[in-house]
Amino acid sequence: MAEAALAIEGLVTGYDRRDVLAGISLDLAEGALVTVVGPNGHGKTTLLRAISGLLPTRKGVIRLFGRKLAGLAPHQVAAAGVVHVPQGDLLFPQMSVHENLLMGAYLETDQAVIRRRLEEVEALLPRLAERRDQLASSLSGGERRMVGIGRGLMMGGRVMLIDEPSLGLAPIIIEQVYEVIARLKASGRTILLVEENPARVADLADAIHLLDNGRIVWSGPPHDLLERDELLETYLGG
């Protein structure tokens, strides 16, 4: 078996004295799109924050192409090639769309590479080119989400963590966002996606993990989960 792009084994982490994740294990093959679903407040964001080093791991190992990430600071994890598109976008509000995108390429010093990435991102997300000089704080929710994704793409990493890209958006915009994510997958990127609604990723995800109370309580193909009414009922409120 080929080495996993991202491998998590027995991950325990949390805030203060409380463990939020109580031993999470999951593998992400290169080029795969794996989704984590689960109820609010049960540790999905915490999982992504632990991977990107914002939160120290208490137990367990996280490997990126075999390399242990434990103990690395967030900027080092970013340099190792992990792109984290955080929940709620976390844009730089007093910067223009263009400057937000440039910040995505902070670690890249070759101007030619930065220019090429900008062209790619603006081709994938044409709205960003139209809004180039607008302040991030004055964008609509959908535009912000696109900037968040575009800024992540500017990093050039091949492993992406995307946290609830549909959060707070109108259905039609959610559709657009997922079209973009489908194209990212088609381009060969490896994606760990957090989502509330498993139906949205039914045709996109290679596997889905149901996270409840800090544990993975079910894993399998998305269509299997959608047929398990009792699981949907118990964990996702039907």
């Binding site: 990107s52 914002l54 600071a73 967030p74 900027h75 970013a78 340099a79 984290h84 955080p86 976390l90 844009l91 730089f92 509000p93 007093q94 910067m95 400057e99 440039l102 910040m103 995505g104 902070y106 670690l107 010093t109 800024r151 990093m155």
Partner: peptide, 24 residues
């Protein structure tokens, strides 16, 4: 400048800057 932009980014959103590789 790149360094100046990193300062503003860190000021505006420390965690986001970290995630992009800025050593805060």
């Amino acid at each position: 400048t790149r360094a100046g932009r990193a300062i503003r980014a860190t000021a505006q959103h420390r965690e986001a800057a970290q995630l992009l590789g800025v050593p805060v």
